[in-house]
Amino acid sequence: MLKGIDTHIKKGEVVVVIGPSGSGKSTFLRCLNLLEQPTDGEIIFEGVSITDPQNDVNVQRQKMGMVFQQFNLFPHMNVTGNVTLGPIKVKKIPGDEAEALAKKLLERVGLPDKAEAYPKQLSGGQKQRVAIARALAMEPDVMLFDEPTSALDPEMVGEVLDVMKDLASKGMTMVIVSHEMGFAKEVADRILFMDDGIIEEEGTPKEIFDNPKSPRTKDFLGKVLY
């Protein structure tokens, strides 16, 4: 349940959303590409109101990559199939071009040798990196990450965060819901602390982690940073 969120995400900005479970972080993120339909309010993406009933959100979703907690790879297609499906079916680019793009992206996420593998043959960390490649294949302007490392075994968290850090360093606009405080501190331009459906506090990592103003932020950080 969101109770009124008002924020602006700039091009190239990396925003990490933190907060206790049930605070509405994921709901907020899923509203951004309308996987969750807000009951009220407006979402403007690149100058277009995507909540406008006249708007076809499929157009904007092509420009908004999304990475899910549970990966949601397509199990009946191999890795290349997963990555090329969007470009081929949605953007209608030729198959060989899409495959060349997939090859490049798989190299970028460190999985050039897994092009022919099926999702069930991959580890959690590898699946999530394929999911990132699949989202990047649409050449999005913004990437949305919904707790991308929460379903991973601890030893695989690093490889996924490394890919995300690389993206951030290359100037990708990113909105990340995460419990990885160290990562948030390192890559975020801005932290949103959400609690009970509102943005309780926001600021640079330094402001939020070193000098939180709200007692609720303090309380939350006290519990997660020990």
């Binding site: 979703r61 397509f74 649409m138």
Partner: peptide, 24 residues
């Protein structure tokens, strides 16, 4: 999550059914 993933890459509902949900 399968349909959500399909929608997230810009597929309309029908396309998601055809390429993702129905084959599974």
């Amino acid at each position: 999550g399968q349909m959500e993933a399909a929608r997230s890459i810009g597929m309309p509902h029908g396309m998601g059914m055809r390429y993702i949900v129905i084959p599974q």
